[in-house]
């Protein structure tokens, strides 16, 4: 597969396309540098097997290590709670997208506007369109997708990568958070 092609081939966006992340450590560094990041998790996270765990298990570990507040979309809040992790909030995907374009919104934890939004686990076309809304109407927000598919509307995205590489990338990022520093 070519590096920077949208996963769904016809989803061609326009002139401004996501920069391709080749080193997961770079994402970890960006998250560390962000003042107020947020992680939005879609329902695919509870359906996707990654090794002997579900994707959502990696996400919880990731969120804890990165110290990023999580918003669970769709109906999956209960899956987090079952695993002993309480997200900062839950709401429909379009609702969180709509709030993120509002520069006056004080954030999911009322600590101020978010400057970095991470996305993972939404259906490809939903994430694609919401990221588009943010690209065009949230000028002060940067976006990164942690999915294993290329999302051209994000600010930064991984290319289309295998499940194994995806799992490895998540692990590398978590290690970087454990290392500390910026």
């Amino acid at each position: 597969m070519t590096a920077a092609e949208p996963w769904q081939i016809a989803e061609i966006p326009g002139p401004k396309k996501a920069l391709v992340v080749t080193k997961p450590g770079v994402v970890a560094a960006m998250i560390k540098r962000a003042k107020h990041p947020i992680l939005i998790v879609g329902h695919v996270a509870v359906e996707t097997d990654l090794g002997d765990k579900k994707l959502v298990d990696y996400i919880i570990e990731f969120a804890k290590k990165a110290n990023v507040p999580v918003v669970a979309t769709a109906h999956i809040i209960g899956e987090f709670l079952k695993r002993g992790y309480e997200p900062a909030g839950f709401m429909p995907a379009v609702d969180i997208g709509n709030r993120l374009v509002d520069s006056d919104w004080m954030g999911i934890d009322s600590k101020g506007p978010h400057d970095l939004a991470l996305f993972i686990g939404l259906p490809y076309y939903m994430e694609w369109t919401i990221l588009s809304g943010l690209k065009h109407f949230a000028p002060n927000l940067k976006t990164i997708t942690l999915d294993n598919v290329y999302h051209p509307h994000a600010s930064w995205s991984f290319a289309n990568i295998s499940m194994e590489d995806w799992m490895e990338n998540l692990k590398v990022m978590m290690e970087k958070f454990e290392e500390g520093g910026t």
């Binding site: 061609i12 966006p13 326009g14 002139p15 401004k16 379009v94 997208g97 709509n98 374009v101 369109t129 919401i130 588009s132 809304g133 065009h136 109407f137």
Partner: peptide, 9 residues
């Protein structure tokens, strides 16, 4: 309205 453009152009 919350717009999510399908095309940038």
């Amino acid at each position: 309205p919350f717009y999510m453009p399908y095309c940038d152009v």
